[in-house]
Amino acid sequence: MRTLTATTGRILRQLRHDKRTVGLLVVVPSLLLTLLFYMFKDSGPLFDRLALTMLGIFPFLVMFLITSIAMLRERTTGTLERLLTTPLRKTDLLFGYGIAFGLAATVQASVVSAVAYLFLDLDTKGSPGFVILIAAANAVLGVALGLLASAFAKTEFQAVQFMPVVVLPQILLCGLFVARESMAGWLQAISDVLPLTYSVEALSEVGKFADPTSTMWRDLAIVGGAVIVALIAAASTLRRRTP
């Protein structure tokens, strides 16, 4: 527990020293959402649906990228090898990243949601609190997949290429561009096994219903399960002994 807290604190301290990253994290999603608002200003409820989905996609996308680079840096600078010679457990490191970046993403989601609800007339039947909760879960999903993906990258160039491999298909098939019901059967089958599909569905439930639905809770549980699976897989890629 102590080493987990120390690791989470260390990652947050690294983030704090990088003021430009913090600035980008907080400001960029709000700017993009504002852009979306003006694009779909006259299209009625379409903006609500798009904005809600984007609130889920931003933290997922950004945290995936940040985490895979951060973890790659741990590997290339030798800090990972050093950490593995100390009493730190592998799960402390992975959960440390999950918690630290999850917290950062919650701040990000809160700011974007505040902008969306207060200035961009975003309207959902359900509570903004659930939107932030699902966005945070998405961020942790991005962290978990980023930790896993970084094991397969040797350089930063490779690490960023995993974004289109891991993240883009999930965005394309989550129901944002084409409703899932109208997809070909095999596309739907792929969509069914991608975790982002469920968080986007959970967000649309918040948009449609005043109270949290059982579908929303089930979707959140699926995202949580995907996080656990990805973290366990990532832990198995952390080898104490290397060639």
Binding site: H17, T77, G78, T79
Partner: peptide, 10 residues
């Protein structure tokens, strides 16, 4: 380690 393995951003 031979190459310094510390966090440059701390």
């Amino acid at each position: 380690t031979q190459a310094p393995s510390v966090y440059a951003d701390l």
